[in-house]
């Protein structure tokens, strides 16, 4: 998770955790302030597909 950056501007992402277990974050999001885009984390898998 700590290696992830915004796929568009390659800038840092701000993590919001909604649900986590002992091992990992289950639901949440990664927010790029520069692009104003929120990338969702669902079922432990972050979705970093660039917005079209």
């Amino acid at each position: 998770m700590d290696i992830l950056v915004c796929p568009v501007c390659k800038g840092e992402l701000e993590l919001t955790v909604e649900e986590e277990n002992e091992k990992e974050i289950v639901t949440g999001s990664l927010y790029c302030a520069k692009c104003d885009v929120r990338y969702p984390i669902e079922e432990t898998i972050p979705n970093l597909l660039p917005p079209e």
Binding site: M1, C6, P7, Y39
Partner: peptide, 17 residues
């Protein structure tokens, strides 16, 4: 699971520095 992690993303616009 501790040694492999997955991300949804586009190979031509990777979300890594």
């Amino acid at each position: 699971s501790g040694h492999i992690s997955f991300q949804e993303g586009d190979v031509s616009r990777l979300p890594f520095g």
